[in-house]
């Protein structure tokens, strides 16, 4: 959450003053995406102090790193799927020395060697997950929600949450219309926009800080949510269910990368190795509800977590699932135009 981002910045400001610290690792990560326990254990084990700063969108992270200035000298960042290839192509990343990463061979082969980084020279998978539908089953009665198209249902007027993510919201609408979620066709994007304007009266809020919050606050009954958020939300709200929509979920893979202006790439390698340890990877997956790519960690998971379809989907759940890809600058401008149009409700 932004509150945490703020706390992170504060921590950064405070530690920035003391230059005689032995070793510091500047970690730039999504909000609520790393249990504090992991950071503490890493600090205890290595003596390296972790300065933790957060962001709530790839765009924000990218804009910050792109500047390559000293105020944004992070040693590790966690971009999603296609942002890895984008940043790699723009020369924003340092290569990762795989010989220094223990546990690389433990990674799910389906999540390594992807098009975004064919030989994993620049990225190591951290967690993967999906964006699907959250349903507050205590308040939603009648026909069960099974598809993105159900969000348009009259009964959800004023009760729908969407992520505050331009690409995801359009992805969802494009899939409802039967188009590819990564469409670059201006005609299709416009149609998706038209379709979304019909949804707008139902939309209560856009939230990418912590999409479970509108459900817990009682503001939303149904809507887009990340699977880990649904798992975390269920802890305090039993009725919150995660649904894999028929049109297909939005899948993503978040990977560790070392930005070009990192001051302590050595510590970054150490941290990646630490997180790939089976017991640490299992701890992370259990705590924040996303799926770990470390195969040996999955055996350590309790049945409750390993058997939770929200965290670990079945093959059937992933039918029609799509990864986001880089759509190029021209299409991005088209999306941006319709996004602002949509948000201003004009």
């Amino acid at each position: 959450m932004k509150k945490l981002a703020l706390a992170g910045m504060l921590a950064l400001g405070l530690t920035g003053c003391s230059s005689d610290d032995p070793q510091v690792l500047n970690l730039y990560n999504w909000s609520e995406y790393m249990p504090q326990e992991v950071l503490t254990r890493f600090e205890d084990e290595t003596g390296i102090k972790v300065v933790y700063t957060t962001y709530d969108s790839n765009e924000a992270m990218y804009a910050r790193l792109k500047l390559l200035d000293d105020s944004a000298a992070y040693d590790l960042a966690v971009p999603s799927t296609y942002y890895v290839s984008k940043m790699r192509n723009e020369g924003l990343l340092l290569p990762i020395d795989q010989s220094k990463i223990s546990g690389f061979d433990q990674l799910d082969p389906e999540l390594t060697g992807l098009d975004i980084d064919p030989s994993n020279q620049y990225s190591v998978p951290y967690l993967w997950g999906t964006t699907g539908i959250g349903v507050d089953t205590a308040d939603v009665t009648g026909e069960p929600v099974t598809a993105w198209a159900d969000l348009w249902d009259e009964r959800f007027k004023g009760k729908v949450n969407l992520t505050n993510d331009m690409r995801e919201v359009f992805h969802m609408s494009l899939r409802v219309l039967g188009y590819p979620g990564n469409s670059t066709d201006p005609q299709q994007i416009e149609e998706a926009y038209e379709k979304l304007t019909e949804l707008m009266p139902s939309v209560r809020t856009f939230n990418s800080d912590a999409p479970r919050m509108p459900f817990l606050e009682g503001e939303a009954d149904v809507g887009m949510i990340w699977n880990g958020e649904a798992v975390m939300g269920k802890e305090s709200m039993e009725a919150l269910e995660y649904v894999y929509p028929e049109e297909g979920v939005i899948a993503w893979l978040d990977s560790f990368v070392i930005p070009k202006n990192a001051k302590n790439p050595e510590a970054a390698h150490q941290f990646i190795s630490f997180v790939l340890k089976p017991e640490i990877a299992a701890l992370i997956s259990e705590d924040i509800g996303y799926a770990t790519p470390v195969l040996s960690a999955r055996e350590l998971l309790g049945d409750e977590v390993a058997g939770d379809r929200a965290s670990y989907p079945t093959a059937e759940d992933m039918v029609n699932a799509e990864f986001q890809t880089d759509i190029g600058d021209e299409a991005l401008q088209v999306y941006a135009k319709y996004w602002e149009k949509l948000k201003s409700g004009l």
């Binding site: 969108s57 765009e59 924000a60 804009a63 939309v203 209560r204 509108p214 941006a336 948000k343 409700g345």
Partner: peptide
């Protein structure tokens, strides 16, 4: 811009939100 973001559920854009979107999302 953070007031519509937090209290308006990221709806009801202000000029400040447009400026922020252009710098971050659209990179214009």
């Amino acid at each position: 811009f953070f007031v519509p973001d937090i209290l308006g559920g990221s709806r009801n854009l202000l000029v400040g939100n447009v400026i922020k979107n252009q710098f971050l999302d659209a990179r214009n």
